[in-house]
Each structure stands twice: as structure tokens, then as C-alpha cells.
Design a protein around this nucleic acid. Sequence first.
DNA 1: CTTCCATTTGGCACTCGGTGCCATATACCC
DNA 2: GGGTATATGGCACCGAGTGCCAAATGGAAG
Lengths: 176, 176
Amino acid sequence: MAFELFDHEGFDATTVDAIAKRAGIGRRTFFRYFDSKNDVVWGAFTEQLDHMREQFARRPADEPLMESVRAVVVEFNRVDPEEVPRHRRRMELILRVPALQAHSTLRYGDWRAVVAEHAAGRLGEDPGALRPQAIAYAALGVSLAAYEHWLAEPGRQLCDVLDEALSELARGFSLN
Amino acid sequence: MAFELFDHEGFDATTVDAIAKRAGIGRRTFFRYFDSKNDVVWGAFTEQLDHMREQFARRPADEPLMESVRAVVVEFNRVDPEEVPRHRRRMELILRVPALQAHSTLRYGDWRAVVAEHAAGRLGEDPGALRPQAIAYAALGVSLAAYEHWLAEPGRQLCDVLDEALSELARGFSLN
DNA sequence: CTTCCATTTGGCACTCGGTGCCATATACCC
DNA sequence: GGGTATATGGCACCGAGTGCCAAATGGAAG
């Protein structure tokens, strides 16, 4: 709904008034459905994270930790082929519009918490400890690098790029 | 100057009007010195990045890449012992106040660019390529994890935590 | 159908960050 | 001292986001 406005006018130039009018609701009502204009772009992300948590729980207990992370993150980002163009436009907004880039950091915190939680379980440490947090932060980082690369290179499959980036991470970016 | 206000009232509750009044300047003038209220917290960060670039240039050419990254990032974050309390309060704001947490993402972009640039040089790739970007993103991530850990554990030295986290990264977070 | 109650809606006014415009003050040069 | 460039800051404006409250909506019960 509001995405047409973002596409045509740009995110910053699209006012909440315009979005509300387009949706046929009052401006005040808009802010009851979305905490902020930024949140329009991020749909039901929290629910998706529940799904990621389940995927982590399903991994075999003897699998190397970074291998689990790689597999789950790759699968988490697999989208229906016909949804790819929409996903692309959404991620273009998130990764390229400064306001969204900044705001998204807050959402990433929830994502990291899921990864850190699983890593902590595997390592027998507290989710707030250095290693689980470092792993979660690093996994997020290389995923974002993969997303940016995917946006810049229309030919490649997102999951392939993610797989490559997360494999490099598990390898410590060493040469061999 | 403005940091006393942030400490006493909190960042969000401190208005630009209050900061300007405290500084004895007009509100309009404030916005000529700082692009935003957020930028007050980030001082001369760009200049510091130039220094980081120089440090990278100084590393021996045969040093493993992730070793250079570790060494430079650790040194980049070494602060004068008497400045530690101030640094701590500053980083508490940056890492814990949501508005700053979000905004800081934009500054981190410049930081990552420096790391990616060096990594690209070493790998013989484009700075925008996947691996340099992934390395920069990952290095940033584990550094932030280290900072958070440092803030939570008053006993430890920041550089030690950074060193540990970046070493783990270079090891791919593997067990041995 | 009507009455009553709960929930949803959205108008209004306000705060605050940020910006463009323009008059004035300040500083520097001749 | 006069003249010019630059720094200052007042003013009005925009847009995001919020608290308050009145009106609309929609069931359930009579």
C-alpha cells in the first residue's frame, strides 16, 4: 500500500499524512498501527524471528555452531521466488535510505538476540557473554554485507551470497 | 559541555534549546555546528578515522589480514587512562540510548569503509566486493560486542576485550 | 429495533528536531 | 573610518510523534 508512495516519491518525501490518506485512515490511527513511519517497512519481523528460533532448535546437537548459524540464517532469508522483487525493493529501502538504515539497527537487536541465545546454549555460556554476542554481531554483519552485495549484483541468488559470506566467517576469513 | 545535561536529564529529555542555552549560543547556531543533536556525542570522528587509515598503512605487508585488523582496531580504541571515564560515559550513550544507537549506524559506515579499503588492498579485490565488506562488517560487529561487554564489566580493559573478540573472529569462533 | 457498553477512530493541539530565509552583528581588510 | 565577508540568531515553517478527548462503530443483551 504505502510502498507505491515510497517508490514514486522516495521514503523521506512521503509524509505520514500521505500514507494515511492513501490508506483511507486518519493520521492518528496510522500511529496506532505503526510505532513510526520506519516501521511500515518492517512488517511482522518479530513473528519471523520466532520461526528462526524454531529452526535453531531443530539443528542437530553435534553440528558445529557456526555451521548451524550458517544454515539457519541462509534458510531464514529464503523467500518465495515470486516475492523476490518485492523483497528486493524492501531491502533497498532498509539498506540505502539513511533514516531506515539507522532505525533498522534497533530491529537487528532482536535478530542478534536470537542468534546469541542459540550460541550461548551451545557454548554453555550466558547469552550476554562476549562470545555469543560477538558471534551474533558478526553473523549479522556478514549477512548485511551479503545483502548489500546481492542488491548490487542482480544476477546472484541471495541465499548463495549469504552462504558464501557466512562460510567465510566460519573460516575466520583465512586464505585457505 | 552538553554532556552534563545528558548525564543529568538523559539524552532524550535534553532539548536542543537547553543545550544551546547552556552553551550561550542561539538554537540556530547550534545547528550550524552540529548536523543533529546526535552529532554532539560523536566528536571529531572523521579525523580519527584518518588516523586509523594511517595505522593500516603501517602494517607489514606479510602480516595476515585479520591480524592487521585486530592490531589496528585494538590500537584505534586505546584511550588515555584519564580519559577512560569520559569515554565510558560517551559509549554508554552511543550504545544504550536507542536514538543514538540508531544514528551511530551511519557513523559506523565510515569506519567500515576504512577497514574494507585495507582488506580490499590485501585481497586484491574491490573495496565494495563481498569479502572486504564482510570483513569490515564482522570486525565492526565484534568490536561493538566487545564494547558492550566492556561497559557491562567495569573490571576489564577495553583493549583486552577487543583483542579477545577480534582474535575469536580471526579463528572463526571455532573451539580450538 | 433499541439500548447500552466497549473498542476504534481521528481530530486537535502540542512538543521537539531540523531547515530556509533574512536581518543584524561581528571581524577583518584596505 | 568605511566597506565587505562571514558568523549569528531570530522567525516562520515542516514533519514526526504523542496525549487527550469526543464522536463513531459495532456487537451483545433486552
